[in-house]
Design a protein around this nucleic acid. Structure first.
Lengths: 328, 328
DNA sequence: CTGTTAGCGCGTTCAG
DNA sequence: CTGAACGCGCTAACAG
């Protein structure tokens, strides 16, 4: 779209190669004098380098791609924040693409647009990749890493919370508060995350000789509406005194529905949510949560991608902690 | 990084030119037979086109860049949603970059990474561009458009709400409810948006012969904490009975602080917020809002960029409406 | 320290 | 319908 190094070479009275040397920040390969001339010409012509050309010849890129599920989770903001900051520190630019959660085509498309551009790495945030796209991701030969989602049997390397522990600790916390009839609400049993958390929940109960009834577990997809439905169900069909909500939003749904039924939280019913985003603090009552280290996932994600040993990297759990607030 | 059209040309027993023709979707310029051979080879070799090379030679791109401020506004999700859907419909890929709100360098960097890649268009969402970057944006010669933010004197084309009307309607609504002592909280007077809304607020009051006192306006930056501060200030220093909050989050801050003071909403104090995101519906009481058409901004934004008449395009207001809920 | 040459992967003439 | 040759803008290798 315009001015090239040839143009500025002509204006500065040097060769294109020299211009290139000055502009690509090589040191000690040109004199101050010519550098100045070149820089003046650049300014005068409003030159912008053509990255397509650069990447074509260097086969390198300083762009980090982040593919993220469209799911409205405020956790993503924190992760991106961590990514952004760490990337910046390392001179990387970040581009973000949205892909559906389970939409095969959207995922493939996002992967393709990223792969076609030889980015230096791919971070997949909260994406449960359809297995049909596994090969595509692998074939690109670009370093990649999943964030905020785990896999079984080492299918892919990831950085996330230990979701078994998430489920376990949440439940354990409620039991320590004296509850035994504890629900598990709005998690998606078709996701690895949902399965692991459920297993943790189960383990915490059974370790303390509590056998959960089947209808204590109310499936969903981590949404606000699922929280509403769960609480409605519990109110009508169970005598639970507490529940683990699969996300902050689900917890909010439960609280609101509880209020509608005249159920007081935490007195009549205690809730602990999973995530611990700012939503927990702006609600009344504020919501007790298993708080995940989202920001750290982002930071560690970039660092791992950058490290030489990325190929040996297996997986990593970031810390979780219980943040006690007012809903329990 | 792998297999090129030469490789597949060899495997298919044709020339690279033919491969190119088949792959770039040209019709009627090759036989079915060769097309099949080529496609087989592509699959076998797991070929992915090199976009750098394509864009270098075609000087075109089907990528739409979205630059967005890091500010935590759930409005952005809606806008992006609209962009994404419309872009997809038109065969465009979308990449998103984050830039600080007022950070000169971050903005420049985001602009540069986008301009260097000859994207087909740039959408700037909720970015109040530092004037020093104006020239950079213009020089690129790439179609662009601002979303969710307006400008004075035609500095840049934009699509947003009419922020004067936003301020006016919000205030008018409260007056129609019988309030006369109305605050204006947590807007940033250094932004065009803040100024316009304030002017609308002022106009609504004065049209009805109410002269607002100076301390009815409590400045801020649209944040949750600003909402908290505003309500604290109002409680101590004023006898207001209602207020316009500059954002949903600010409104939530006000509500929570009101509760702390034992001020009942809406009985003792009415609040209307500006934005109308899902946050309004998950709070208790649910928050009455001036609801903006964020999704539509995204949709219209892409359509405008795509239209031939982009150069003549001036600006456009998307509709606003009052959504009455429980805080007023 | 600097200019010349070659070529990254692809689309597009121009001949056949 | 297909192949050969050229060039997009830039960097790298090789001479000077």
């Amino acid at each position: 779209m315009g001015t090239t190094i040839k143009d500025i070479a002509k204006l500065a009275g040097v060769s294109p190669a020299t211009v290139s040397r000055v502009l690509s920040g090589q040191t000690d390969f040109y004199s101050e004098k010519t550098a100045k001339k070149v820089k003046q010409a650049v300014k005068k012509l409003g030159y912008q380098k053509n990255t397509s050309a650069v990447e074509l010849v260097t086969q390198k890129s300083h762009v980090l791609a982040v593919i993220i599920s469209t799911i409205q989770t405020n956790a993503a903001d924190q992760i991106i924040d961590g990514i952004q900051e760490t990337a910046m520190k390392n001179g990387l630019d970040v581009i973000i693409l949205y892909a559906g959660e389970k939409n095969l085509d959207l995922q493939r498309r996002a992967l393709e647009t990223v792969i076609e551009r030889t980015v230096m790495g791919i971070l997949l945030v909260a994406i449960d990749l359809n297995t049909k796209n596994d090969a595509l991701l692998r074939s690109a030969n670009i370093p990649f890493l999943f964030l905020s989602i785990g896999f079984l049997k080492g299918r892919f390397p990831f950085i996330s919370s230990d979701d078994f522990q998430v489920g376990y600790q949440a439940t354990k916390y409620l039991m320590d508060k004296g509850h035994t009839k504890i629900g598990f609400a709005a998690a998606d049993p078709e996701t690895v995350i949902g399965q692991l958390r459920l297993a943790g929940y189960w383990k915490a109960l059974s370790s303390n000789h509590v056998t959960p009834k089947l209808d204590w577990v109310y499936d969903g997809e981590f949404t606000y509406d699922d929280g509403i439905s769960a609480m409605s169900y519990y109110e009508q069909h169970t005598d639970l005194t507490a529940a683990v909500a699969s996300s902050d939003l689900a917890a909010i749904g439960m609280l609101n529905q509880a209020q509608k039924f005249g159920i007081r939280v935490p007195n009549d019913f205690a809730v602990i949510s999973i995530d611990g985003t700012f939503l927990c603090t702006i609600m009344r009552p504020q919501i007790t949560s298993v708080t995940q280290s989202f920001r750290e996932m982002g930071v560690k994600g970039v660092e791992t991608l950058l490290s030489q040993s990325i190929k040996q990297f297996k997986s990593l759990y970031t810390p979780i902690k219980i943040t006690e607030r007012q809903s329990s």
